[in-house]
Amino acid sequence: MASGTQKMNSDFTIILLGTFAMTFMITVMFAFAYLYQKKINRKRIELTQIEELLRSEELKSAYALLEGQDKERQRVANDLHDRMGGQLSTLKIFLDLLEGTNLDTKQKELITKLQSSAQTSIEEVRSIAHDMSNSTLNYFGLQKAIEHLCEVISESKKINVTQHIEINVELSTELMRDLYQIIQELITNTLRHAQASKIHLELNALRDGINLIYEDNGTGFDSSAPYKGIGVRSLNMRTERYNGTVIIDSKLGKGTTFIIEIPSV
């Protein structure tokens, strides 16, 4: 009887241990798969966050680079205008003073030539300084300036800027500057707020008018909301100068499109 009970207990122990071993192995496999995937998913989220952070930092750098370039040009332009222009003006004053003194004909001729040369230099320096303050725009024209701007932004490698520009009419310097600044303002807004990866702009300046379409694939905003930022207001002001219109099409999470139309110029 006792031997029978002992045998049953032994049977039971082996069955129990066997079942436990099998269940344990299966559980371990499932637990491993679950824990592994959880770990990988957590790492993936962390990586995405780091990438986003890096991306925003790189965009900040691109923006800073753009701002830096403009500031540097402005500084050189101011230096040229104030220092070089100042020195040349002083030189001309001295030459004017020298003109009143007792000089022979040859010397007077030479002074007149020097005065003329100084005057030309003053005007040249002023002109260069003025051109430099308007950066690439005045050197190469609107198309090249916009292309250069797009290249600088694209160099960040985190935002791709594509453009299509067709200019078939001669534009005034003011209009070129305003259009350039509108585009600059739009890009700046995208870089600052939209978290976009793509920008596409199309500019057509034809006889019957100017048409600018600017699109980004960023976070967008509610364009029907009454409040508009300073950027949008400045955009409206610049466009209204030429009796133009601004149409904004944006929805949260759906990117933003700006359509700017300026009638015949």
Binding site: A33, Y36, Q37, K39, I40, K43, R44
Partner: peptide, 8 residues
């Protein structure tokens, strides 16, 4: 190693 992205 964490090389496999989807263990499943």
């Amino acid at each position: 190693k964490e090389e496999v992205q989807e263990i499943g």
